[in-house]
Amino acid sequence: MDTNIIYSLLGENFVSYAIMAIIIILFITVYALIAILAELKISAWMQRRYGPWRNTWHGVGQPLIEVFKLLQKENITPDRADKFLFNLAPFVVFMGALMAFAVIPFGELFIPSDLNVGIFYAFAVSAFGVVGIIIGGWSSHNKYSLLGSMRAAAQMVSYEIPIAICLLSIATLNGSLNMETIVVAQSGWFWDWNIFGGAGGATKLFVIPFTLSLFIIYFIASLAETNRTPFDLPEGESELVAGYSTEYSGMKFAMFYLAEYTNMFIVSALITVMFLGGWNSPFGDFLNYVWLQPAWFIAKAFGIVVMQIIIRWTLPRLRIDQLMYTSWKVLVPCGLFCFLGVALYSMLSL
């Protein structure tokens, strides 16, 4: 296989698949530590605090210390909870987050699985997160958990529709659901990215407003999909304690936490693939080496993660009716309109 360096070195067999999976899990762990540190530091910076400072140099070891703290905590299961489902839920949630990594193309030579329906797959497996959150909230036998999980499910199901419209538009624009094809179609300079209408001549000026709005729609919907502020009603602490994770502690809570940060990376990676040119360098052939492509990809995706964090500490939380209004009366009609524009552009092949 020429789409993955590990498969071409070791052949396509279960050992190389296992190595691939281990690399991805290691990546998630390291990424989550950095993202949590970024969250702590950026929140402190935005509130004019110091943030974590005392442990290790400038507090950079804080996330690691928190992980060890969570690891050694007692494994508590509430007395009246449904024990099996209560313990199962964090794994289902994390499984959904992990499964999406199977199709994320980090570089020309680092695509774990070059699936023909890649984007559709990454979108479909997010369903595991919804089911896992409902299971967790229901099995806790706690009214706050149940309300939180029902809010989470309603919100994630509603915001899947604008996301689906955005995927559909990009599939129409590039004529493929395959992530590699979509990224290759955007190679070149940064004005060839899908956010600026994809590669094309002067006629693409017509489609730029549509793709730009689709990018904004997708970004807003992805904030809701990962339950981040201003859409973090499922864990609104002033009303619901901690939502579906109220009864969770220790390692099981850490799994929910890890899944949230992993999901943030996945939606950012999807934005990178769909709108920001994937692994391509923004400046033509400048530093566009095969071995540097994962760095470009991770840098773009992490930039979006940082944007999500900054928005979390900027905006207040929406009310539940405003949340539904945003999805059904703003994002869905706007998305459909943009989809029509993109479809017209693709059909006329301007």
């Binding site: 009246r80 449904d82 979108f123 089911v131 409902i134 706690n142 499910a153 899947e160």
Partner: peptide, 28 residues
């Protein structure tokens, strides 16, 4: 992928919602 999308993302979520809405909510 459609199997995951439609059955797990759609129908199963709907079934669980139905279970939670039709019975007393915290009744385990």
């Amino acid at each position: 992928v459609t199997q995951i999308m439609v059955y797990i993302g759609g129908i199963l979520t709907l079934i669980i919602f139905g279970v939670m809405l039709t019975t007393r909510m915290t009744e385990a």
